[in-house]
Simulated assay, not measured.
Amino acid sequence: MIDSASPATPPKAVILLSGGLDSATVLAIAREQGYACYCLSVDYGQKHRAELDAAVRVAKALGAIEHRVAKIDIGQFGGSALTDPTLAVPTDGVQPGIPITYVPARNTILLALSLAWAEVLDARHVFVGVNAVDYSGYPDCRPAFVQAFENLANLATKAAVEGAKLTVHAPLIDLSKADIVRAGTRLGVDYGLTVSCYQADDAGRACGSCDACRLRREGFAAAGLADPTHYQNA
Score class of each variant (00 low, 15 high):
K60V: 12
A64V: 03
A64R: 00
R68L: 12
V69I: 08
A70P: 00
K71G: 12
I72T: 09
I72A: 05
I74E: 00
G75H: 06
Q76T: 01
Q76G: 07
F77S: 07
G78Y: 02
G79F: 11
G79A: 10
D84R: 03
D84K: 04
D84S: 05
T86A: 13
T86C: 09
L87N: 05
L87H: 09
V89R: 04
P90V: 00
D92V: 08
G97V: 08
I98R: 15
I98L: 14
I98V: 13
T101I: 06
V103L: 14
P104D: 07
A105L: 09
R106W: 06
R106C: 14
N107T: 09
T108C: 15
T108K: 14
I109Q: 00
L110V: 04
L111D: 01
L111A: 06
L111K: 03
L111W: 05
A112N: 10
L113V: 01
L115A: 11
A116G: 07
A116H: 01
A118T: 02
E119Q: 10
D122Q: 12
A123Y: 02
V126H: 10
G129V: 01
A132V: 09
V133R: 08
D134Y: 14
Y135S: 03
Y135Q: 13
S136L: 14
G137D: 13
Y138T: 04
P139V: 14
P139Y: 15
P139L: 15
D140S: 14
C141V: 00
C141F: 13
A144C: 09
V146E: 03
Q147W: 11
A148V: 02
F149P: 08
F149M: 13
N151P: 07
L152K: 06
N154Q: 13
N154P: 06
L155D: 15
A156F: 15
